[in-house]
């Protein structure tokens, strides 16, 4: 466990160094650069690209979470149950749409820039969160729900105090999937002129500068892996706390 923490810290430091002080790594990337070509990407600062990349993802994922969870709450209430089969079909079929295609299709509708990227990230990000929120809210332990009704909690109280907290780890898994996809899709967003870290990779591909490709790829890859890892840790922590009563006891026995 300690080794993992050490490894994690090392990766975070490496990532920070790559973003803030890219020139430290000139020696490492130089062999990949073409003769007389630039080794370190300098057309825009890597820090500002990273920030704009991450804020695109954060904005889209936050909006997607709010909308998806609200919709999931609506369709899992008795009044919205008529929409449940349709919702399931939409999430199943919607997720077969390739993220790149969603991005490409947003351009004819919205033009170039950060706008279509944001919309594509938002739309695509809805689906995993919506799906997981529906699963989480519709597979609650029946005994707990019965008890919540039995002690006289109102619909609203049941939702806020019992259903949402219990479904939260599952919803969080959806958010993690959504964030990972968004990070990847935002990278491609630079092909529609959104300023993201993909720009570095694309620039490398266009000028046959493998050093750029590697630099951009490394930074984006590290961001994705570390954010994914952080969200997994959060999930583990939360489900351990929630499961401490029942399933935790079972787990410790095994």
């Amino acid at each position: 466990m300690k080794l993992a923490a050490l490894f994690r810290t090392a990766l975070v430091l490496l990532l920070l160094a790559l973003v803030i002080k890219p020139t430290w790594f000139t020696w490492a990337f130089a062999p990949f650069a073409p003769d007389n070509g630039a080794v370190i990407y300098e057309r825009a600062s890597l820090l500002s690209l990273s920030l704009s990349h991450l804020s695109l993802v954060a904005l889209a994922s936050t909006a997607a979470t709010l909308v998806a969870v609200t919709l999931a709450i609506l369709v899992t209430r008795p009044a919205g149950s008529a929409f449940l089969p349709l919702s399931r079909t939409i999430t199943n079929m919607g997720q077969t749409f390739p993220p790149v295609a969603v991005l490409a299709l947003a351009v004819p509708a919205l033009g170039f820039g950060a706008g279509p990227t944001l919309v594509a990230l938002f739309l695509y990000g809805l689906l995993p969160i919506f799906e997981n929120a529906i699963t989480g809210l519709s597979t609650l332990p029946p005994a707990t729900m019965e008890a919540a009704r039995g002690i006289g909690l109102s619909h609203r109280q049941r939702l806020l105090r019992v259903e949402l907290p219990l479904a939260f780890p599952v919803i969080l898994t959806g958010i993690r999937l959504s964030v990972v996809i968004a990070l990847g899709t935002a990278t491609i967003g630079s092909t529609v002129a959104a300023s993201t870290l993909g720009e570095v990779i694309i620039a490398g591909l266009l000028t046959n500068n493998t050093a750029f490709v590697l630099q951009g790829g490394l930074i984006v890859g590290l961001f994705a892996v570390l954010i994914y890892d952080a969200l997994v840790q959060l999930e583990v922590y939360l489900s351990r706390r929630l499961g401490a009563g029942s399933s935790g006891a079972l787990a410790s026995k095994a």
């Binding site: 990972v180 990847g184 990278t187 993909g198 590697l214 892996v225």
Partner: peptide, 20 residues
Amino acid sequence: SFLQTIPSLAMFGIMIPLLG
């Protein structure tokens, strides 16, 4: 699963020097 999280453009890009 960590391989899966690497953004596709980065993965495709990294394959180029690797295969080269």
